[in-house]
Amino acid sequence: MSAEAMPAATSRADLRGRLQDWLPRLVLSPSVAAMLVFVYGFIAYTIYLSFTGSKMLPSYDWVGFDNYRRLFGLSAWTTALVNLGIFASLYILISVAIGLMLAIFLDQKIRAEGGLRAIYLYPMALSFIVTGTAWKWLLDPGIGIENTMHLWGWESFRFDWIKDRDMAIYTLVIAAVWQSSGFVMAMFLAGLRGIDNEILKAAQIDGASNLSLYRRIVIPMLRPAFLSAFVILAHLAIKSYDLVIALTGGGPGRATELPATFMYSYTFTRNQMGVGAASAVIMLMGVASVIVPYIYAEMRQGDDR
């Protein structure tokens, strides 16, 4: 180590040491730069556009809140918002209900658990376009489930929601629940497996019936899983685009129009970029209202790491 004391060696070591100090930040910087430009810069740009009179191409004439005023005056947008409300609440509710039930049932030392779990989960691996294609056809009264029931002798069976303006939105729920509920099941199952069995044993010794055991002890302990499931499903619902395109194309009429499809068609096919940008901003605000508290909690939790 005495050689270290020589001035030349020391200064070179210092330089290397300083480089080592900066390396981590240097390595992280491309990603951070990309994020700042492509995510936050772009968000800022879109927000800016939403206050301009952009039509087919971006223009930079400031129009204040005109686009937002127009947006909320459009019946197509209010329809899309109402549809999203129906779709998101049913999608989240049913997915959570089915997911929780399947998780609790699968947790009862079922022999074929591994296989069943795989079956419940595989839809998650599919693209919404594939899911939409499959369900579009199953729901088609001419050849799908309705037709099959007729051929099996149940002549009065009716299942033509996909062609029905009032019911089409529910077909979206069916397909989306089919795709996501297995995933929710996996989240709850992981939560259940994290519960200490000694607590369950203690409750049983205390005389709790299975029903009250789950209602009073297990389900309250799954709070984090509920929260995560809600966050994931809510943001998926707001972003939903592919499924609508593949399943109904937004129709019949505007019966299954969602904000995501609205934004796309106003921006790229109807050349109302300002209004499209405004709708995207509203969507972002919707997602942020769900995600930001979650991230805030996550970051605070990170304090003690």
Binding site: V39, A260, M273, M299, D303
Partner: peptide, 26 residues
């Protein structure tokens, strides 16, 4: 480094943004 939590929070949020918000500038 100082601010690492902010970088992480910003990254985390970017996972969840509706991509419609970046379509036009992209």
């Amino acid at each position: 480094f100082p601010g690492h939590r902010w970088v992480f929070g910003l990254l985390l949020f970017s996972c969840f943004i509706p991509f419609q918000i970046v379509l036009i500038p992209m």
